[in-house]
Write a protein that binds this DNA or RNA. Structure first.
Length: 224
DNA sequence: CCCTGATTCGC
DNA sequence: GCGAATCAGG
C-alpha cells in the first residue's frame, strides 16, 4: 500500500481526531502502526503525549551521560585536608561551625545511634514509645440512616429498578445526574413499553424504496 | 505481556 | 520516503 493523497488526508484527519496509531493503521488498512507513526512524523503532524517522553527533565536526568561525570558536590576534588599539628584538637575544629552550635542533637543522629528494640513473643519487633501513634479515637456512636436519594433521581427508575416488566428505555444520558429509565410497563416480550417499542423497532420498508445510506466522513469504518 | 508514541536506520 | 526494529514508559 502506498500513501495516496486520499490516504494521507484520512491519516491527518484521524490523527488529529486523537485516534491511536494502531487504530488508524487498522482503519486505513494495509499499513502497520509503525508506518502510521512514521508517516505522521514525516508529515509534521503534531506529536501526541508519548508515554516515553512524558516529562522532559526526568527523561533527561535518566539519560544523562554517565561519562559526563556530574561530580557529586559532596566529594570535592580539592585535596584532602592535611593533617596539621596538634592532633588532638583539630578534629573538633574540622566539624562545621553549625555542628558546634547544636552539638548534643547532632551527636544522637539515628544513623550513628541505632535505636535499640526488643523482640516480642513470636518475633515481632517492638516499637519504641516515640514511634507509636496516638490511638485513633473511636467514632462516637451514631444512628445509621438510609441515604436519601437526590431530588433529581427521586421517583425515577434507576438501573437497580430494572426488571422484565418495566420499560428499559434510557432517558437522558449515562453519567448525567438525572439519568434514568422509562419505567413504564413493558410491552410483554419486549424490553420497552409500547411507545418506546415504536421508536426502537421500525417497520421494514420495501426494498425498492430504500435509499442507499449517505457516505460517512472519511469513508466510514472499514468493513471486514 | 499488553498497550502507547518516538527514534533509528537500512532499504 | 518508507517502515520494521527497537526503545522505553504506562
Amino acid at each position: 500500500m502506498s500513501w495516496t493523497d486520499e490516504r494521507i488526508d484520512r491519516l491527518k484527519a484521524l490523527w488529529t481526531k486523537g485516534m491511536t496509531a494502531s487504530q488508524i493503521a487498522d482503519e486505513l488498512g494495509g499499513v502497520s502502526r509503525n508506518a502510521v507513526i512514521g508517516k505522521a512524523h514525516r508529515l509534521g503532524l503534531q506529536s501526541r503525549p508519548s508515554p516515553v517522553k512524558a516529562n522532559e527533565p526526568a527523561a533527561k536526568a535518566k539519560k544523562a551521560k554517565p561519562e559526563a561525570a556530574p561530580k557529586p558536590a559532596a566529594e570535592t576534588p580539592a585535596p584532602k585536608p592535611r593533617v596539621e599539628a596538634a592532633p588532638s584538637a583539630p578534629t573538633q575544629r574540622a566539624e562545621a561551625p553549625a555542628a558546634a552550635a547544636a552539638p548534643a542533637r547532632s551527636q544522637v543522629a539515628p544513623e550513628s545511634q541505632p535505636i535499640i528494640r526488643s523482640i516480642g513473643p513470636g518475633g515481632f519487633i517492638r516499637q519504641t514509645p516515640s514511634e507509636q501513634q496516638a490511638p485513633i479515637p473511636p467514632a462516637p456512636p451514631r444512628r445509621l440512616v438510609p441515604a436519601k436519594p437526590s431530588a433529581e433521581v427521586a421517583d425515577k427508575t434507576s438501573l437497580l429498578d430494572l426488571n422484565e416488566k418495566i420499560c428499559k428505555w434510557p432517558m437522558g444520558h449515562p453519567g448525567e445526574p438525572d439519568f434514568h429509565f422509562c419505567g413504564n410497563p413493558a410491552n410483554p416480550g419486549f424490553p420497552y413499553c409500547v411507545e418506546h417499542c415504536g421508536v426502537a423497532y421500525q417497520a421494514q420498508m420495501p426494498r425498492r424504496d430504500r435509499r442507499p445510506p449517505p457516505p460517512l466522513p472519511f469513508g466510514g469504518p472499514r468493513i471486514r
